[in-house]
Simulated assay, not measured.
Amino acid sequence: MNIVQELTKDLGGNYYQDDQKKGYTPGGTFISKNSYGLIKKENYSIKIYCFENMGIRAVNTIDGSPFKITLIIPFALKKEQSIFPRSFFQKIISRTPTSNNTLSNHAKTVLKKYSLKGNKELTNYILNDSFLTEILPNHILYITTKIENDISILNLRPNESVTTTIELNRLYSIIDRLGEVIFKHRFILKK
């Protein structure tokens, strides 16, 4: 049993797996067998994807984490949100508002490590949530939002090794908490 299947089972969700696909490239044979788990909550849904490449890859190909966790919210947000690690140059040239006394030390650490762009209201709710501000600095994550018609999709992509169910569950807890924060403040955040 793979870790997506195991975590999905533990969370009471449904697990789906694609058939094995095989392709040939100049860099070698590409064999994939993608899978995902779907966890339906009362107010939103979460999908945990595993893009598994079982083939031979070219030497210069970069492999990232095969996991992506998606939060599907049944309404459109006013603005998209993106959260990504600050680059070395961003840390040098940008001024982080760490002198704000209303923010906790954990929130100031998040602002030092991550760039939060887009939805200012959602950024404020994230920085005022004690769970998110404590756990985000411990990971290297990319979170992006896509708004389609009347739904919002937040994608979390880790840029770190995830090898156990416990590690994947930590990432799941981040996106789950984001869903709770967004749904709690939906009247302010939605169009």
Rank of each mutant, 00 (worst) to 15 (best):
S104H: 05
P74W: 05
I83C: 00
I93Y: 09
S82Y: 07
N101A: 11
G12N: 11
I140N: 15
Q90P: 02
T133H: 06
Q20D: 00
F67R: 07
L7G: 15
E167L: 12
Y44S: 03
S87D: 01
F131H: 09
I135R: 14
I31F: 07
F67D: 03
I31C: 03
I143L: 11
G37R: 05
N53Q: 13
G12H: 07
P97K: 11
G118S: 10
L154C: 05
Y15M: 03
R170P: 02
H106C: 12
S130T: 14
T165C: 15
D150Y: 13
E6N: 15
G55R: 12
I140H: 10
T29Q: 14
N34M: 00
K190L: 06
M54P: 07
V181E: 00
F131S: 07
N2M: 10
Q81S: 01
I48A: 01
F89Q: 11
L77F: 09
K68Q: 08
T145A: 08
V181K: 01
N60S: 11
Q20R: 13
Y24M: 12
G179F: 01
V4F: 02
L11N: 04
Q17G: 02
D10W: 12
D19K: 09
Y125E: 06
P66C: 04
C50D: 03
S94E: 12
S130E: 13
T145L: 04
L168D: 03
Q20L: 12
S65G: 08
H106G: 03
P137Q: 03
E52S: 00
P137S: 06
K184Q: 10
L141P: 11
I175K: 02
K184H: 08
T165L: 10
I126V: 09
N138M: 14
K117S: 04
H139L: 14
G12A: 04
Y16P: 02
K113H: 09
L132S: 01
F51L: 05
K33M: 05
I135Y: 06
E148P: 05
M1I: 13
K190Q: 13
I126W: 02
I83E: 05
N60I: 08
I39R: 10
C50M: 08
D63I: 13
L141C: 04
G13V: 12
R177T: 10
Q5V: 07
V181H: 03
Q20I: 12
F67Y: 12
S152L: 08
T109S: 12
A76S: 15
K191F: 10
